[in-house]
Design a protein around this nucleic acid. Structure first.
Length: 259
DNA sequence: ATGGTCGGTCTCCGA
C-alpha cells in the first residue's frame, strides 16, 4: 500500500499539477493540506473519476485538509480532539480497509509565526493535543500513520541554512521538542529512517530563488506506529514536482507499506 | 542591508 502526503497550497490553483502527479505516482491513499477551499467547492468529481474516494475537511480561504483513497474508508473523523472552540480545519483521519485496517491521520500543523506570540502558543497547544491523540491511538494498539505538513524542522541537518531559522517557529526548541516527544512515544520518522540527511528537503520557498539554490527544509513528515513501521518497505520524496509549471512550494512525500 | 513570491480574497493576510 502506497500512502502519500502533499501540501498543495490551494486546490483551485493546483488541479492540473495534482492530477498529473496522481497519474504517475499512483498512490493508494493521499492526504492533502492547504486545500484552501470549503467542502462544497472542492473539485471532487475529477478525483472520483480516476478512482479516489474523497473526504474533505475544508475552510474558507485558509487551511483545509483532505483524504483521497482508492481503498475503502471507514470511521472518517474531522478535527483534532481536545478543543471544541478550535475552528481551524487542520486534521482528518479515517481507517483504510485493505485486508487489515490501517488508520490514516492527515494533518496540517500550525505554522506558529511570529514567535513568541498567540500564534506560537496556538501551535504548541495544538501539538500537545496531537500528542494526546497519538497516545490514545498507541494505547489502542491499532496500526496507524500520521502524515502531513508538520511545520517543524526536526534537526539542523533538515535545513540547507539552519542559521536562517534560529528564531523561526518551525525551528525553535519548543517546537522541535514537541515533535521529538511524539517520536519518543514509539513513532518512526519514516524519511529519517530510510533517507538519512543532510540535504533531504520537502519545501522550498517561492521567494529568493530558494528552489534554484536548493535552499530547502524538511517539514513534511510521515510518522509510523510500531505496527506500521514493521511493514515499512520504501520511502520517497517526489522532488521533481517542485520544478514544474505552477508548483506548490511543497512536494509529495510517500511511503510503501507491506500488505 | 534590502527586497523578494505565491494563493485566496471584503486590496491585505497567511505562509
Amino acid at each position: 500500500m502506497k500512502l502519500a502526503t502533499f501540501n498543495i497550497n490551494g486546490i483551485k490553483a493546483r488541479g492540473e499539477a495534482l492530477a498529473a502527479w496522481l497519474a504517475e505516482a499512483a498512490p493508494d491513499v493521499v492526504v492533502l493540506q492547504e486545500i484552501k477551499s470549503v467542502d462544497e467547492a472542492f473539485p471532487r468529481e475529477g478525483l472520483e473519476a480516476v478512482g479516489y474516494q474523497v473526504e474533505t475537511h475544508g475552510q474558507k480561504g485558509f487551511n483545509g485538509v483532505a483524504i483521497l483513497s482508492k481503498l475503502p474508508l471507514s470511521d472518517v473523523r474531522r478535527g483534532l480532539p481536545g478543543d471544541e472552540s478550535d475552528e481551524q480545519a487542520r486534521w482528518i483521519e479515517a481507517v483504510v480497509d485493505a485486508g487489515r485496517p490501517l488508520r490514516v491521520c492527515g494533518l496540517y500543523l500550525p505554522n506558529g509565526n511570529p514567535a513568541p506570540g498567540p500564534k506560537y502558543e496556538y501551535k504548541l497547544a495544538w501539538m500537545a493535543r496531537m500528542e494526546a491523540r497519538v497516545r490514545e491511538l498507541l494505547a489502542s494498539e491499532e496500526p496507524f500513520v500520521c502524515l502531513g505538513d508538520y511545520n517543524v524542522i526536526p534537526q539542523a541537518e533538515d535545513a540547507k541554512k539552519p542559521e536562517n531559522w534560529i528564531t523561526d517557529a518551525l525551528f525553535l526548541p519548543e517546537s522541535r521538542a514537541a515533535y521529538q516527544r511524539m517520536l519518543n512515544l514509539g513513532l518512526t520518522d519514516a524519511v529519517r529512517a530510510r533517507m538519512p540527511g543532510p540535504g533531504v528537503f520537502t519545501f522550498w520557498d517561492y521567494q529568493q530563488l530558494s528552489w534554484e539554490r536548493n535552499n530547502g527544509i524538511r517539514i513534511d513528515h510521515v510518522l509510523l506506529s510500531p505496527q506500521a513501521a514493521d511493514r515499512l518497505e520504501d520511502v520517497g520524496i517526489d522532488k521533481a514536482v517542485r520544478g514544474r509549471e505552477k508548483p506548490s512550494d511543497h512536494v509529495p512525500v510517500w511511503v510503501r507499506l507491506a500488505g
